[in-house]
Amino acid sequence: MSAGAPNHTRRPDGAALVIAAILAAIAIVIFWQTSQMRVPPVQQRVGPTVFPYIVATGLALLSVGTLISALRRGFPARSKDDYGPIAWIIAGLVAQILLLSSAGFSIATGVLFAFTAKGFGRGPLWQTIPIGIVFAFIVWFLFARGLQLSLPRGPFERLLTTGAF
C-alpha cells in the first residue's frame, strides 16, 4: 500500500485489528440471529436465510483480509484527529435528541447549533445558544407553519405563536 506511512516500528496496526474483530463480531451476530429464525414452510426455493448467510460469510472473509492487512500494516496513514470538537458535536446531537420532546424543536436544535459551533471553535455558549435558538425558530416557523412539516413544538414555539404556554 503506497499510502501506508512507514511508522517507527513494524508492530501490527492496532486500530485495524480492532476493525477486523468488529467485522468478525458482526458476522457472528448475523450467523447466530439467522440460525434462530423460523423458516415458514411456504413455497420458497431461496428462503429468507440465504442472503444473511452469504453476507455473514463475506464479512467473515473480509475480517480475515483486514487482519492480514493489519499485520502487514496495509492501512493508509491517519491524520492526527482532535477528539475535543467531535465530543462537542456528538454532545450537541445527543442533547437535541433528549430535549426535542420536552423543550421543542427550537431550543433543542439551537443547542445542537451552538455545540457544533463550539466544536469549530466559536463560543461562548451563552452567546451562541440564543443565536442558535433564534435561527432554529425561524427554520421551525418556515417549515412547521409555512409548510405543515410535523416538527415537535415546545413551550418556546407555543409562546411565540399563540402567546400561551
Binding site: 458535536i89 450537541g92 446531537l93 437535541q96 426535542l100 420532546s101 424543536f105 436544535t109 445542537l112 447549533f113 451552538a114 457544533t116 459551533a117 463550539k118 466544536g119 469549530f120 471553535g121 466559536r122 451562541t128 442558535g132 435561527f135 432554529a136 427554520v139 417549515f143 412539516l149 410535523s150 416538527l151 415537535p152
Partner: peptide, 25 residues
C-alpha cells in the same frame, strides 16, 4: 460562510430533514 455557522446550519437541516421524514418520538 464561517465554518462554525456553516456546519451548525448543516446539522440543523440534516436533523430537520430526518425529523420531517420520519420523526416519530
Amino acid at each position: 460562510i464561517p465554518k462554525p455557522w456553516l456546519y451548525g446550519g448543516i446539522l440543523v437541516f440534516a436533523t430537520l430533514g430526518t425529523l420531517g421524514a420520519n420523526g416519530a418520538m
